[in-house]
């Protein structure tokens, strides 16, 4: 598994200095705190979490758009965290990004053609090559050639996100980081973009890092999923295992909170968590989730659990996960059937 990993993130940390009023009370906040994972070529790896969990900062740090204070990110043989200046700029053709809001991520003064052609500027190629490339990529995202001359404000949200995807695809990157690519779109349009992402992956064998807060979307598109809370990964698992037996109490609560669209038949009730996530400025000494955990034990407040690795490559940070004779379970929460007991 490790040998075919395309993207490897090791112990990534991003710190922000937050100033209090009048510049006093300087705090250093770890928005991303020791995040490690790897993505296999051609897979879609999802990061879910709520606002403030550090999922977007992780994406931006991998993209080298915010500075990582610690850790190593490598894409194939290339160590991204070691690249600087011109070398980094040239390496960017290998990893591109699609942003959340297609209304703000496209330069309003450029025509669709020029928006998409922007990353080609670093490739030192002839305009004729570029023209062929542009036509191909427009077709791949389902836009017509005559739409290339329009300006962003003349497109609908879904079409704008197609342009953004074309811009990310045009250099034929190996990795595309998608930061909430459908959450700013109208419900009916989300499916168009999700299915397009899937089709492009099938056709071009591109790898996605997919950031989202929407568990339904993540389940639909991701092969592996990491759950983040307060800058740390609390659980990483393949899709099938995560949604059939979530091991971390936070994953369980998160899943239970999603409303189901089939009335009367909903198999679970929401676990209502107490309060809100603590501030990153003073993290609890024990498990970061202890304060809100529905099954908190005295031990949880004393020592932080390690992110232990289980036999199928799955990892979880909870004191009460056990693996016995090939079956894993959380001794406190049990499986999914426990959701209704905990509410």
């Amino acid at each position: 598994m490790i040998d075919q990993a395309l993207l490897t993130v090791q112990d990534l940390e991003v710190e922000f200095a937050s100033k209090g009023a009048l510049g006093r009370n300087k705090h250093v906040v770890k928005a991303v705190n020791g995040v490690s994972f790897s993505i296999n070529k051609g897979d879609t790896f999802g990061i879910v979490g709520e606002s403030g969990s550090g999922k977007t900062t992780t994406a931006l740090a991998i993209m080298r758009l915010v500075k990582a204070t610690k850790g190593k990110v490598s894409l194939g043989d290339m160590v991204l965290t070691d690249l600087h200046g011109e070398a980094l700029r040239r390496a960017r053709r290998q990893f591109q990004m699609v942003f959340q809001d297609p209304f703000s991520s496209l330069n309003p003064r450029l025509r669709a053609r020029d928006v998409v052609a922007e990353p080609l500027a670093m490739l030192d190629r002839s305009n004729k090559d570029n023209a062929r490339e542009l036509e191909e990529v427009f077709a791949q995202v389902g836009l017509r050639p005559e739409q290339m001359d329009l300006f962003p404000h003349q497109f609908s949200g879904g079409q704008r996100q197609r342009i953004a995807l074309a811009r990310a695809l045009v250099t034929r990157p190996e990795l595309i980081v998608c930061d909430e690519p459908v959450s700013a779109l109208d419900v009916a349009i989300q499916a168009q973009i999700l299915n397009l992402l899937k089709r492009i992956q099938r056709d071009l064998d591109v790898t996605y890092l997919f950031i989202s807060h929407d568990l339904g979307v993540v389940q639909y598109i991701c092969d592996w999923i990491a759950v983040m809370y307060l800058g740390q990964i609390v659980e990483v698992a393949p899709r099938a295992s995560l949604f059939s037996y979530p091991l971390h109490p936070y994953t369980l609560s998160l899943l239970s909170a999603v409303p189901s669209a089939s009335p009367g038949t909903k198999a679970w009730k929401a676990i209502t968590l107490k309060g809100e996530p603590p501030s990153l400025i003073n993290l609890p000494t024990g498990c970061i989730f202890a304060d809100r955990c529905p099954v908190m034990q005295p031990e949880c407040q004393k020592s932080p659990p390690a992110l232990q690795e289980l036999s199928d490559g799955r990892r979880v940070a909870c004191h009460f996960v056990e693996e016995k004779e090939g079956t894993v379970q959380n001794t406190l929460t049990g499986g999914l059937e426990m959701i209704n007991v905990l509410t």
Binding site: V187, L255, S260
Partner: peptide
């Protein structure tokens, strides 16, 4: 139908 709804359990 246009939204992927979260499904829990082993037969998704």
């Amino acid at each position: 139908d246009c939204v992927p709804h979260l499904q829990l359990g082993s037969n998704i």
